[in-house]
Simulated scan of single mutants.
Amino acid sequence: MFDLALDALATRGRLIVIGFISGYQSPAGLSPVKAATLPAKLLKKSASVQGFFLNHYLSKHPAAMKHLLKLQASGDLVCEVDLGDLSPGGRFTGLDSVFRAVDYMYMGKNTGKIVVELPHSVNSKL
Rank of each mutant, 00 (worst) to 15 (best):
D7F: 07
L71I: 04
A28G: 01
P88S: 11
Q25A: 12
D103F: 05
V102F: 07
L42K: 02
D7L: 12
K125F: 01
L38P: 01
M107L: 15
K34N: 14
D82A: 04
D82F: 03
G94C: 08
K109E: 05
S74C: 06
V17W: 12
A5W: 06
K70I: 01
Q72M: 11
Y24I: 13
T111N: 09
Y106G: 12
I114N: 01
S59A: 13
G94V: 07
P27T: 06
L54Q: 08
S26N: 14
G51V: 09
F52E: 03
K44A: 15
Y104I: 09
D3K: 03
S124F: 13
P27R: 05
G19F: 06
K44H: 13
T93G: 00
C79G: 02
P88N: 08
A101Y: 05
V122G: 04
L15A: 10
L86A: 15
H56N: 14
F2E: 03
Q25V: 11
I16T: 14
I114C: 10
G89F: 04
L54P: 01
L4M: 12
S48I: 01
V49A: 07
S97K: 10
L38R: 01
K66Q: 13
C79V: 15
H67C: 11
T37C: 04
R91K: 14
K60H: 14
S26A: 14
S26T: 10
A5P: 05
L69P: 00
N55K: 03
Q50D: 04
P62D: 04
V49L: 12
K109V: 00
S59Q: 08
F2L: 14
F52C: 10
G90H: 08
Y104N: 12
V78W: 13
H56R: 15
A36Q: 06
V78Q: 15
L9N: 02
P39Q: 09
I16L: 15
V78K: 15
G89V: 08
N110R: 02
V98N: 02
S97H: 03
S59L: 06
L43Y: 09
L6V: 10
A64P: 00
L71K: 07
K34H: 13
D82P: 03
S48K: 05
L38V: 15
E80L: 08
D96C: 00
V102S: 07
Y24E: 14
F53S: 05
G94D: 08
G75N: 06
N55H: 03
Y104V: 07
C79Q: 15
G13N: 03
K34G: 06
I18Y: 13
S48A: 15
L42F: 07
T11N: 14
K45P: 02
A8D: 12
L83Y: 14
D85Y: 14
T37D: 12
K125C: 04
L58I: 09
Q72H: 11
A73Q: 11
P62H: 03
G13S: 10
G29V: 03
A101S: 09
D3G: 01
G23S: 14
S124T: 09
R14T: 14
K60P: 01
D7T: 09
V122F: 11
G108S: 11
